[in-house]
Nucleic acid binder design. Structure first.
Lengths: 199, 199
DNA sequence: CTGGAAATAATTATCTATAAAAGAGAAATA
DNA sequence: TATTTCTCTTTTATAGATAATTATTTCCAG
């Protein structure tokens, strides 16, 4: 359990980057962050390295780290990668979907629809998407998809936060329905459309 | 330019893990490695974190790092991910392939066929596969594929190193031929077969 | 002999200090 | 006035030391 300090810093910083609280291009100065978390700069370095590994920051040796930019080209790239990998995951996931896992996913769907603000919705949306793919049982694939979701989330915050309104997501319901009847092709086509649309 | 010490350590360790010189499950002790590279343990930690980010090691907090295992299930997983992502990359790559890029790829193919031992062949094989996909122009996709190739390389070393013999790879030649005539579907089907076979 | 608790050793995580590098700005020269 | 170079400041990278946690061994009771 004992969460390491670097873990804490990583979680906080990644959340701030996702929400846009830390803007793209911003410098991440080690001792500033260290002071903010009342620690030394060593665990800060570790947290920054992990940000880099997840594509949220980029290091230029001896010149420090910056929050990565999020240009439209990369947004499109992330969407295409998500289409490729999530359809793969969904194939396995549909096969392995148990009633229990389906209930978890449907609860996540309801929670997502009931979200009362953008950050809450975004977090629950990610939970939903993870729930429908987790049963695929391919950890490396899921991990890669998670990273892509983080990039997508940054884009969602950057472009949709002001316009966000509570609403029922019919795509989510349709995906659940397709999973229930183990209709892989229906689930896949809805998910693909959903991923492309939500950009 | 100024390569940081952590870079050096990371390169050396990742190479050792890929070739199997550092076996799966082996403990990576910080001060042992630090002594071996005549440095302190701080850059060692950074190198280890990067190994973890690339899936070559796994950390249990306060208990150290171990080289990740490479079970058959994950090998299959990596192959399926490679199929999904490399076909995507190949579509864009075929469209953007210039005569110059094609020559680079064909040179890489010849170098690969001319390799005189397994480690040399493995390195050149990776160069070839990267050469045919680089023109896709999607950096994040290429980066993810690179990590998958590293995992594949570990498997190749573990299972084929003793049996390796020099040979002409007809798949590679066929892929180059398909790229030359901009035949996406032919290139894709050969590449998919090649990825599945080379496991 | 065996099982478990306490002490010891080994190892990781963090802190403080130092060295090296990069960047900014001022002074000197052309 | 423009440019170059030097110095000063800021920031990163590494080293050495300390604290905290885990693993191991030893010793005693049963």
């Amino acid at each position: 359990m004992t969460a390491t300090i670097a873990d804490t810093i990583y979680s906080a910083l990644s959340q701030q980057i996702i929400t846009g609280d830390l803007a793209a291009g911003e410098k991440l100065r080690q001792d500033h962050i260290a002071r903010a978390f009342d620690t030394s700069h060593v665990p800060v370095r570790e947290a920054l390295l992990r940000l880099e590994a997840h594509g949220l920051a980029k290091s230029e040796p001896r010149k420090g780290m910056r929050v990565t930019a999020l240009d439209p080209a990369e947004v499109r790239e992330v969407i295409e990668m998500r289409v490729a990998l999530e359809t793969l995951a969904l194939q396995y996931s549909t096969q392995n979907m148990t009633p229990a896992a389906l209930k978890v996913a449907d609860d996540a769907r309801k929670a997502c629809d009931a979200a009362e603000n953008m950050p809450q919705w975004e977090a629950r949306n990610r939970v939903f998407h993870r729930a429908i793919l987790t049963p695929c049982g391919l950890p490396r694939l899921l991990h890669t998809i998670d990273d892509l979701h983080i990039a997508s989330a940054r884009h969602l915050f950057a472009h949709w936060r002001p316009k966000w309104v509570q609403r029922i997501d019919t795509d989510h319901a349709a995906i659940i329905q397709a999973l229930k009847s183990k209709d892989v092709s229906a689930a896949t086509s809805i998910l693909v459309r959903h991923i492309r649309r939500a950009s």
